[in-house]
Amino acid sequence: MAKTIMVIDDSATMRLSLKSALELNGFKVECAGDGVLALNQLKIGVKPDLIITDINMPNMGGLEFIKNLRALPGFRFVPVLALTTESKQEKRDEAKKNGATGWLVKPVTGPDLVKVIKQVLPGA
């Protein structure tokens, strides 16, 4: 059965490019425009096997989203990858502290992304 991946990014380009690239590789993809919308989706029953989130977003950024996600029941161990243009080390450290699984700097090609997903998501 295809694994489900949630993509959170305020850029429509990023959402569509990641969705297409992941669907090409056999994944099912859910999208959200920011952290608030993503949390709402998770609360109404969307159960992703892995989450890819941007860091700098309006309403709720990636760092805050990861923190809130870890407080939700059933999402403590879901792998979360931060995919961002952010290069500050303190942001990277904060993501790690909040429970992120990995940090990827844009742009990331489809094959590289799939390689990382297979590393953090056994059976993908």
Partner: peptide
């Protein structure tokens, strides 16, 4: 896949 990545 590569092009979709580069479109970022």
């Amino acid at each position: 896949s590569i092009v979709l990545g580069e479109i970022q």
